[in-house]
């Protein structure tokens, strides 16, 4: 695997391999010495053009547990704020010898541009680009679901037969997009629920069920996994719903809806949560909530991605079609 840009590029074998390696990484995180020498001497740059704390520290923890050196670069207060282009920034990082760039960018497709550009030879991991994709979030969600379903026997399993309902701002959500591709590749059935104003137009190419009414959706397809998305105030330039109370009443997971869920349904949220808006405090703190597990699993999944990107020999010159290769 040379880059991790989108979950749409991952086939079933790639996805399961990544999740299985994450299982190995997760066992390391339970040890007293939570460190592996696998990426010693490699340099990972966290290049963040958008504010993010949890994703950045998760990548930082992942890289450090693999003994890589980490350089954090955030756009605010840097040369980018002075007007430097992505190209110049990338070439600066290349000159410093970066082996991997973890890129978060407000523009959809920025990681793809960087990976295809030839400005830098490093592996590129998409840590969220505009409203396009956030592949490591989807991988950690799939990992969390798999662990809740299969426990210690998760290795090698897919998600066939799992019904996942994703509720909220689908229009702006890169988490939803990455999850749609990855979870369907893994065999899950995905239902998207949102107010019509927050649902993308023309969804015919999406392998999902689309619903506008949460209660009807919960009745028609009782989910094994209910994923609540954050209402992203910073991306809402227009009026997508009348007010937050109405949103909460119709599309939020309140205590009443929580009580109606099937007994073994798990509740997920990519964080940060708006308690009382898309998810009630009782739902967020209940035993079926996986919010904290998701954070823990995020480190394992990112370790797996960094390992698969960086540990093997780098093919030089890079071929654009290079994929994960079979191992001995």
């Amino acid at each position: 695997m040379r880059h991790l840009l989108s979950t749409r590029d991952l086939d079933l074998a790639d996805a399961i391999r990544l999740l299985d390696v994450a299982e190995d990484m997760a066992t390391v995180s339970t040890r007293e010495v939570k460190k592996l020498p696998a990426l010693r001497g490699k340099t990972v740059v966290n290049l963040f053009f958008e504010n993010s704390t949890r994703t950045r520290i998760s990548f930082e923890a992942a890289a450090k547990r693999l003994s890589a050196d980490v350089i954090n670069f955030s756009a605010s207060g840097s040369s980018v704020a002075k007007g430097e282009s992505l190209k110049d920034t990338a070439q600066t990082l290349a000159a410093m010898g970066a082996d991997a760039v973890v890129l978060r960018h407000p523009s959809s497709g920025a990681p793809q541009s960087l990976a295809d550009s030839g400005w830098i030879d490093a592996g590129v991991i998409n840590a969220g680009d505009g409203t396009h994709e956030h592949p490591t979030q989807a991988l950690l969600d799939a990992f969390t679901i798999r662990r809740r379903m299969h426990g210690a026997a998760s290795r090698g399993t897919n998600l066939s037969g799992v019904a996942v309902t994703i509720v909220g701002d689908i229009l702006h959500s890169r988490v939803a997009r990455s999850n749609v591709w990855l979870l369907t590749t893994l065999g899950a059935q995905v239902t998207l629920v949102a107010p019509p104003t927050l649902m993308p137009v023309n969804m015919t190419a999406w392998p999902v069920e689309v619903e506008y009414d949460l209660d009807r959706s919960l009745l028609r397809t009782p989910p094994s996994v209910l994923m609540m998305l954050r209402v992203q105030a910073e991306r809402m330039s227009g009026d997508f719903f009348p007010n937050t109370r109405e949103y909460s009443r119709r599309w939020g997971l309140d205590d009443e809806r929580l009580g109606r869920l099937p007994e073994d349904t798990i509740v997920m949220h990519p964080g940060p949560m708006n308690r009382g808006l898309e998810i009630s405090a009782a739902a967020a703190d209940s035993a079926r909530s996986t919010v904290r597990e998701q954070v823990t699993n995020g480190v394992s999944v990112r370790m797996a991605a960094l390992y698969l990107l960086l540990a093997g020999e780098r093919l030089s010159p890079p071929t654009p079609t290079s994929r994960m290769r079979a191992t001995t």
């Binding site: 391999r17 390696v21 190995d24 066992t27 290795r155 698969l308 290769r325 079979a326 191992t327």
Partner: peptide, 10 residues
């Protein structure tokens, strides 16, 4: 670093 990526075992 001198081999194709190896997949760890449990």
């Amino acid at each position: 670093g001198s081999n194709p990526t190896r997949t760890p075992h449990p």
